[in-house]
Simulated scan of single mutants.
Amino acid sequence: MFRILGVLAGFLILGILGSILGFLLGGFIDRFRTPGSGRMNAFSAARRQSVFLETVFTLMGKLAKVDGRVSETEIAHVEQFMRKLGMTHDHRLKAIALFKRGASPMFDIKPKVAEFMTVCGYSGNLRQMLLVYLIIMGMSDGRLNASEVQLLKEIAGYLGYSRTSFDRLLDMVLNQTHFAGGQATSANALEDAYKALGVSERSSDREIKHAYRKLMSQYHPDKLMGQGLPEEMISVATEQAKEVQAAYDLIKKHREQSRATA
């Protein structure tokens, strides 16, 4: 945007030479705009990535402990998560410390979520990805218990989600996990596929395609990294995108077959 303004202002003041100078100056300003207005400078990117990681591991600890004890399955999930991120030894130690801090009975999540909202809350995609990671963490033992769901709802409220919008996201993510690895893993695969996209059997083809494209955009690696998601965490978003793709392909195939036999 500043490039265009620079070109116009420069041309009006100094002609062709001014437009060139305005283009260069505008490009410089564009690269160093403030957080939330567009492209990030290096400091902003590092800050957002750091806060995102700190929030994820701290809240994972809180979620693991909310039912009274941290299970071996939950510990294994966190360790697998750190391996997937390719963390160095020092970073693993820091992540474990954050997890233990969140698991402390006296830990208050409000200041941490408030910091996240200040630094990363401008992006709906980052807020959603935080919840997605936490939902997957809660599901590491195969189910979400009542205390885990209640904590997730509390966190979602601090992130600006209404109860209805969170319930919808939760239902979508839970059903997306039924397509882990890009393959249907449930006997009710078609029903799960509609829920995974947040649509129903009554939805039109256009509505389904719109929902599919919206989800794929939300999980798009370049977009998420551009908004501050740490590069190491892209793999989880990529897995979610594969699950969305598998759900959409199943719906599309079923509808094509139904038309062919009608």
Rank of each mutant, 00 (worst) to 15 (best):
H91V: 10
I96N: 08
L130I: 11
M87Q: 06
G121R: 09
N175Y: 11
M87Y: 07
S186D: 15
L159Y: 10
P111V: 12
V70D: 01
L93P: 02
S186T: 06
T118A: 12
T185Y: 00
V132K: 06
E79T: 09
L144W: 06
R48C: 05
R83N: 15
L63H: 03
L169F: 08
G68C: 06
T164G: 07
R127F: 01
S44L: 04
A95G: 10
R83Y: 08
E79N: 10
L170Q: 13
S186Y: 02
T73R: 14
D171I: 03
A180G: 02
S71R: 13
D67H: 06
I135W: 01
N188A: 10
R101L: 15
G182F: 00
N125K: 13
Q128A: 12
S104T: 04
P105T: 11
Y122H: 12
V149L: 10
V78Q: 12
M87N: 05
M82R: 05
I96E: 15
L85I: 00
E79Q: 13
L134W: 01
I75V: 15
I96K: 14
T185S: 14
A45P: 00
K65M: 15
P111L: 12
L85V: 03
R163Y: 13
M82L: 14
T177C: 04
A45S: 09
R92W: 00
G124V: 09
S147M: 13
Q49N: 08
G68I: 02
